[in-house]
Amino acid sequence: MSEIHLQIDGKEVVASEGMTILDAAKTVGIAIPTLCHHEKLEPYGGCRICTVEVEVRGWPKLVAGCIYPVEKDLVVRTRSEKVDKIRKVLLEEMLAHAPDAEELQALAKEYGADRDRFEKEPSFCIHCGLCVRYCAEIKKKHAVGFVDRGSNREISFIPEIASKECWDCKECFPLCPTSALQAAYVLAESLIPQPDAEVSSCSCSCSCSGKSGTGE
């Protein structure tokens, strides 16, 4: 594999083809924050917290470090006033959903993000998609997915699949960066009826189990 020379935060870095900026930075001990990145999963580039500044043929632009492939003579800045400012706002936007998530709080400290800047919308989910992608790519079960789009996008377990597959798996729980509660909460609802319980006759699309009073 051919060697690629580039510069990250002033350091000369020798990377190999196919590496991302994130990979290359790691080899010289430069840490770029990530939330949606996972080594076992396909690159996603959703959370954008790994945003870095690069200069391509003299033009500065913002790219996601976790997906941007290394190029010859690339100049990368993983911390700059602009990058820090963007990370700060992104964190504040995510903290509106998951104010108590430990990972977010640690990053908030680093970037001076105010957890109370935006009105709280505690859905707990920051749409990193780790649960969705893990279930699809590693487990190949597609028991959890995204529904709707834009501001209304949310994760949802597919009851027909989840009731069969999730019971003894739950491998997505520890992946959730905000709190495993979110996944567990939704999952628990969708897991009714339990595999050995009576099959419900309810055909509604929610996860109410068909017995009145068990839903909200």
Binding site: G46, R48, E93, I126, G150, S151
Partner: peptide, 17 residues
């Protein structure tokens, strides 16, 4: 707000705010 796909934070959350 409704037409963003919702995949990435800056677009989804930035538009919302």
């Amino acid at each position: 707000k409704d037409e963003s796909c919702g995949k990435c934070t800056p677009c989804r959350e930035g538009i919302r705010q």
